Simulated assay, not measured.
Amino acid sequence: MSNKKALLVIDYTNDFVASDGALNCGEPGRAIEDDLLQHVKEFDEKGDYIILPTDYHFKDDPFHPETALFPPHNIAGTPGQELYGQLASWYHKHQDQDNVYKFNKNRYSSFQNTNLDNYLRSRDIKDLYLTGVCTDICVLHTAIAAYNLDYHSNVYEDSVASFDQVGHKWALAHFKNSLGANVLTTDK
């Protein structure tokens, strides 16, 4: 069994987290910043992988289904699509490391239309640790895809957030009860 693991930091961008973001999840998204960054630093210190799947859209794209569901967000080339806060600073200092991988995605799941599965398999990574936003949208769809591709998921409860607290709580239960994921809690 492989002992290689990867931390996925999903969609922790200005548009989803900053108070003036186009589709921000509010204070819950900002409240996880310190814990999320701590997990990033722990993975980096151990030489484990840190993967940053980042939502990426084109303004007023008539062919993308999210155009009808949400206001424009994470538009290519805008500050809204950039990583948020301390994570952005960390990434700029570490982006050239072999264990750091950032890529754009155009669907909720980090696996859909991307090379994430190939990236993980080529490095014999089977254990995923999920963080980011939104718990009940992109984190959830990534966890479902990971389950269907036979990865084992762990979700850091202190490092996921949503603008919908009912959806957030439902997703945490779904990770555990339907996907067999470990929901990792920390004592505070």
Rank of each mutant, 00 (worst) to 15 (best):
N154G: 12
L172A: 09
L7N: 00
Y49V: 01
N74S: 11
Y156Q: 02
G80D: 01
D60A: 12
E45A: 13
A22G: 08
I137V: 13
Q81G: 10
V166Q: 15
I75T: 03
L179C: 12
L128G: 04
N74E: 07
H141A: 08
S122D: 15
H73P: 01
D98L: 10
Q38F: 15
Y129W: 14
D44S: 11
L130E: 02
A6D: 00
N106F: 01
V160E: 02
E27K: 09
L130P: 00
Q81N: 09
R107C: 04
I75W: 06
F103G: 03
N99Q: 14
D164L: 13
L52V: 08
F163V: 15
K46Y: 11
Y84K: 01
T54V: 15
S109I: 03
G132S: 08
H94V: 13
H73Y: 05
F163Y: 15
L87Q: 04
H141L: 15
L184W: 08
H73D: 03
T78K: 05
L83T: 00
C138N: 09
Q97E: 14
N24S: 07
S110A: 15
Y56P: 08
L140N: 05
A22W: 06
H174C: 15
N14P: 04
H39G: 05
V160A: 06
H174I: 11
A145H: 02
L172C: 11
N24R: 08
H168F: 07
D55A: 12
Q97S: 14
F16C: 04
N115E: 15
T67P: 00
P28Q: 06
A6G: 00
L184K: 01
N106E: 03
Y129P: 02
K46N: 10
D35C: 14
G47H: 10
G80H: 02
K188P: 11
L87G: 00
G29N: 07
S89T: 15
D136S: 14
Q97F: 13
K93F: 14
G80Q: 02
V40A: 05
F16I: 01
P79N: 08
P65W: 00
G21E: 05
V160I: 10
S153T: 00
P28N: 12
N113E: 09
E82M: 05
L120R: 01
Q38V: 12
G26H: 01
S162T: 04
P62G: 05
I125Y: 09
K41Y: 10
R30F: 15
A31M: 09
F163T: 11
N14L: 06
A6S: 03
D96A: 14
N104M: 12
L37M: 09
T135L: 10
A22M: 10
T54Y: 01
P28S: 08
L184C: 11
H168L: 13
W90I: 08
T67M: 00
N113F: 04
D127I: 11
I125K: 02
F70I: 06
L87S: 05
R123G: 02
V166R: 15
E82G: 08
S178M: 14
K46E: 11
N177V: 14
N154E: 12
H94E: 10
S153A: 03
E42Y: 13
N118T: 11
V133P: 04
C138A: 14
N99E: 14
L130Q: 03
V155A: 06
F70P: 03
N148K: 02
I144K: 12
S89P: 09
T13K: 09
L172N: 03
D60C: 09
K102D: 07
S19L: 08
G167I: 07
L52R: 03
H39L: 07
